[in-house]
């Protein structure tokens, strides 16, 4: 099987393979001429250059948004474009006053926090039961939960809208939380984590007459911190960026989240580049801040250990 055990410590692992890098192909100690070493240095240099080019390409659109939003109008529309902006914060100021952004940010913040809390609570509860309780039909229940993953969200979009309308949740914050208040992946994650806790903990707590929710809240969840962090980060990223569902169920600014507001702002008058870019930057600022602190963690949480660094 191709999967190696990931629990191995990263240190002291195999020496990573190389391709097309002649110098590092050789084992240390073998006598290779300085020319080979030089070639290796050149190879490393070339890689740095390529990496820098790639990084510039990937960062460019965000950088360009900064340039467009803070540059003086006269310079934005010139060709070739000015890449180094002269600072003028008036467009961003204007963008901030034409729409009630504070309200939108508050909406999105409440929606995101409420979703994170409910996903964590429903996930930890269900995960606990599926991992530690023994009852008939447990595996059936787990399979039923996982079956929910088979249904693409598009398939349920229209009925979800109808149901949300019937529940009176159209144009509310709750209507944006409820459909995603439980996440099968979070349940799965908690279940797997709880299963790895030492059974003696659970047994001891039962002998001591500790109630299950006390065990869950005081022992199991604190020990499952990596799962909690992963679920929190990914729920944050997906809810902050949520668009299609809130677009469908919100009207006016009462429950409108930032991304929908931004889309409307763009729709008013697409020629106000600087104001729109400024608004776009502001709406993604929370994501950028969290990402800059937690990027290693987020990248790992997406694909597991990528082998190094």
């Amino acid at each position: 099987m191709t999967i190696t055990r990931r629990s191995e410590p990263t240190e002291g692992r195999h020496r990573p393979y190389t391709i097309g890098d002649a110098a590092s192909d050789r084992l240390p100690g073998s006598s290779f001429a300085a020319g080979t070493r030089l070639r290796a240095h050149v190879g490393t240099g070339v890689r740095y250059i390529l990496l820098t080019v790639v990084a510039a390409m990937f960062l460019f659109p965000i950088y360009w948004a900064v340039v467009v939003s803070v540059d003086h109008r006269s310079q934005v529309f010139t060709l070739p474009p000015h890449l180094v902006p002269s600072f003028d914060l008036n467009p961003i100021r204007r963008a901030l006053v034409v729409l009630p952004w504070a309200k939108y940010f508050l909406n999105t913040t409440i929606i995101t926090l409420a979703t994170i809390v409910s996903v964590l609570v429903t996930g930890a509860l269900a995960g606990y039961s599926l991992a530690l309780r023994e009852f008939r039909g447990r595996e059936v229940l787990f399979a039923v939960l996982l079956a929910a993953l088979m249904v693409p969200p598009e398939a349920t979009l229209i009925p979800d809208y109808v149901i949300t309308a019937r529940l009176g949740l159209l144009n509310t914050l709750a209507g944006q939380v409820a459909p995603v208040a439980a996440n099968v992946y979070a349940i799965f994650l908690f279940r797997q984590f709880f299963k790895t806790l030492p059974p003696s903990l659970w047994e001891a707590s039962q002998l001591d007459g500790v109630s299950w929710y006390r065990y869950l809240s005081r022992v199991a969840v604190p020990m499952a911190r990596p799962a909690v962090v992963t679920v929190t980060l990914l729920t944050f990223a997906s809810q902050w960026s949520a668009f299609e569902w809130p677009l469908i169920i919100t009207q006016g600014s009462r429950a409108r989240p930032v991304e929908v507001a931004l889309s409307f702002f763009q729709g008013f008058d697409g020629t106000h580049w600087r104001e729109i870019s400024g608004a776009a930057l502001i709406t993604m600022l929370p994501i950028l801040i969290v990402f800059s602190f937690a990027h290693k963690y987020i990248v790992k949480s997406v694909a597991g250990d990528t082998g190094d660094t």
Partner: peptide
């Protein structure tokens, strides 16, 4: 890890905010 983060960053940015750019 910095370069990886840069390549990965667009994936977590909101699609509307980047689309308008």
């Amino acid at each position: 890890s910095f370069f990886r983060a840069v390549v990965f960053l667009p994936y977590v940015t909101p699609s509307i905010a980047t689309a308008v750019i």
